[in-house]
Computed example of a mutant assay.
Amino acid sequence: MTGMTTAEMVEISQGCYAFKPELATQYGYIPTKAAGITFCVLFGLSMVLHIAQFCWKRSWWCSVFAIGCLVELIGWAGRTWSSECPYNSNAFMMQISTLIIAPTFFTAGIYILLGRFIQILGHNSSFFTPKQYLWIFCTCDIISLVVQAVGGGLASSESGVSGGNTALGTNIMVAGIVFQLVSISIFMVCAIDFLRRIIKLGLRRSETGSFTTMMVIMALSVFCIYIRSIYRTIELAQGWNGYLITHESYFIGLDGVLMVIAAGVFNVFHPGWLLSSVESLALPTFQDKGYRLTNVVEDR
């Protein structure tokens, strides 16, 4: 928006003006309205389902998935707004600040879920206790969330100012995403160790249907979030005028679609149902083998 007076820039960034070829948007393109509406609907439906499911099963900790969907919904609503008002800085800030942090809520749910498995299967199944998983990885999530939110706020505010320097905010955002990648990587190592211990303890194949399903779903969700985080790291590292950030198709495919999968799999295979099956099958199996189990804390 160079070549404009400060008053003109303020007016166009706060109003709703049609796209002008000679005046670039903060995105480098005009967000597609159909994509915005589609993802608003998908995340909205997932959120409603998550709310209904965790209320029905009284698995209140699953509310983090609903919160994640709400944050995604707000972000895609901002992009839908930008499709009509491509120069509006509030719409841009709304989407960049929310979509960058939304996956944090899903990873928090996955961390809690593994802790629940350890509660059910006993302390022998992990070198961390459920409380340690909660404190270590959820604390990492909070740190990542705060860092990304601060960076997103700084970058988006500077991007709407003539001559504004977005480097500091962008670097902070990248640091937050990289920190999240590191914490997810460590979690994946812990999850692999958990599986190794379960196999060693000898949970019978015939009794692992729900357990295997839940682990596959967790792995799929983590994989989607992990790939998305790698994409966002590269995208932001290229800068606000980089190739990835100025081509919407990459954002739709490597952020929007992946996050729909990460959220939706827990609607189809909800932990509230599957954990009950795992508990009823795993407890007798391990008790028969003489392993001392931790107390299982019921949600209901």
Rank of each mutant, 00 (worst) to 15 (best):
G78Y: 04
D141M: 03
S144L: 05
S46D: 08
L70K: 03
P103H: 02
C62Y: 04
V178H: 10
L121C: 11
Q180V: 10
G163N: 11
I51V: 15
K131C: 12
M93C: 06
I186V: 15
V147T: 13
N88Q: 13
S144A: 14
E72A: 02
I96V: 15
F137D: 05
F128D: 06
F105Q: 00
L181R: 04
V146D: 08
N165M: 11
C62I: 01
G169P: 13
L42N: 10
F43W: 06
R79T: 05
T98W: 05
Q180I: 07
L99D: 11
L168Q: 13
C62W: 03
S157F: 00
E158M: 15
R79W: 03
V41T: 09
A108H: 00
I184F: 02
T107H: 04
K131N: 11
H50G: 00
L134E: 14
L121I: 14
L73C: 12
T139W: 03
L168D: 12
S159K: 15
A102Q: 05
F105V: 02
N88A: 07
W60H: 10
R79M: 07
S83L: 01
Q119G: 15
W76M: 00
C138Q: 07
G153P: 03
V147S: 06
F179W: 13
G160N: 01
W81F: 08
S59G: 06
P103G: 01
M93K: 11
F106W: 04
C85G: 04
G153I: 14
L99K: 02
A66M: 04
L70Y: 06
G169Y: 04
S125I: 03
G163M: 09
V147M: 07
Y111R: 04
F127I: 11
Q95D: 11
V182G: 14
N88C: 07
C40R: 07
L70R: 06
